[in-house]
């Protein structure tokens, strides 16, 4: 694995919805083990960009390259659908803002965690269950809840279950869209702590989209600030947050309420 090749490289990614701009000319490099935060107000193109990077949206122009486990670099936008779906099942994971989008309702927590294992060919009930229990421990869900339905979980637990379900197959890159959205602050804090621990332990790379600057300060190594579909500022997290250069970033940072 060459150390000078980024895990994910995007160049000039633009997504137009007719005349309207989703995102325009975005370029970024994500290095192995790095957590990249994308911040900006609602409608600034964060989620569109995330969709383009994770192959769920087709950009109008630009390129997205991803380095596979064996070190070869593939153009995500040129991949065939089977290859893209395989990548999404193995090397990638997506954590949705609303856990209900990421969880399978109507099956137990254990089956939710085991689904990706079974999709990759696990066919031993006992081992799948043991792995699910292990992951419930890791995301601090009581083992006794393994046979309960996700709908009986609190929203914080649902979000943690979604994270367990995504990470169980050890993806190398996780896309998170507002992972703490809709959670109260103490639950947020626990979740952030958990995600920080997991990314460090597993050496995960992650791209986290959020409008919450506190989340990025805790999790992200680097930041992209977006506005109107374009990246207006980027750099190390503390550099951007403590010494913002662009007027919009300055506004964003100064609008955070300090309790």
């Amino acid at each position: 694995m060459a150390a000078d090749v980024p895990l994910l490289r995007a160049r000039d990614v633009s997504k137009l919805y007719g005349a309207r701009v989703g995102c325009r000319d975005v370029g970024l490099d994500l290095w192995p083990g790095e957590v990249l935060g994308i911040v900006g107000e609602s409608g600034s193109g964060k989620t569109t960009l995330l969709g383009c990077l994770s192959g769920r949206l087709v950009p109008t122009s630009g390129s997205v390259e991803f380095m596979l486990r064996d070190g070869t670099v593939v153009d995500v936008l040129q991949l065939s659908e089977p290859a893209l779906r395989k990548l999404a099942r193995t090397d990638w994971g997506v954590v949705h803002q609303n856990p209900r989008d990421g969880l399978r309702a109507g099956v137990t927590a254990g089956a939710n965690v085991g689904e990706r294992l079974m999709a990759l060919g696990a066919r031993h009930y006992g081992r799948i269950r043991a792995e699910a229990l292990d992951w419930l421990d890791r995301v601090e869900i009581d083992r006794g809840r393994i046979d309960d339905w996700p709908e009986t979980f609190s929203s914080g637990m649902q979000q943690r279950l979604q994270i367990a379900r995504t990470l169980v197959t050890r993806p190398r890159l996780v896309f998170m869209d507002e992972p703490t959205g809709g959670l109260d602050v103490s639950v947020q804090a626990r979740l952030l702590d958990l995600v920080r621990g997991l990314t460090a332990d597993l050496g995960l790379s992650a791209i986290i989209v959020t409008h919450d600057l506190a989340v990025t300060r805790l999790l992200a190594h680097r930041l992209l600030v977006m506005r109107g579909g374009e990246v207006v500022e980027s750099g190390l997290t503390d550099q951007v947050l403590d010494d913002p250069q662009h007027p919009y970033t300055q506004l964003l940072v100064s609008s955070v309420l300090q309790p």
Binding site: R85, R104, I128, R129
Partner: peptide
């Protein structure tokens, strides 16, 4: 698409649920 790509893992999710319950 799932048939075309042989993505049948979800069928085992159903069997898993049966055994669990």
């Amino acid at each position: 698409k799932m048939h075309a790509l042989e993505e049948y893992g979800v069928m085992h999710v159903r069997l898993y649920e049966d055994i669990t319950r």
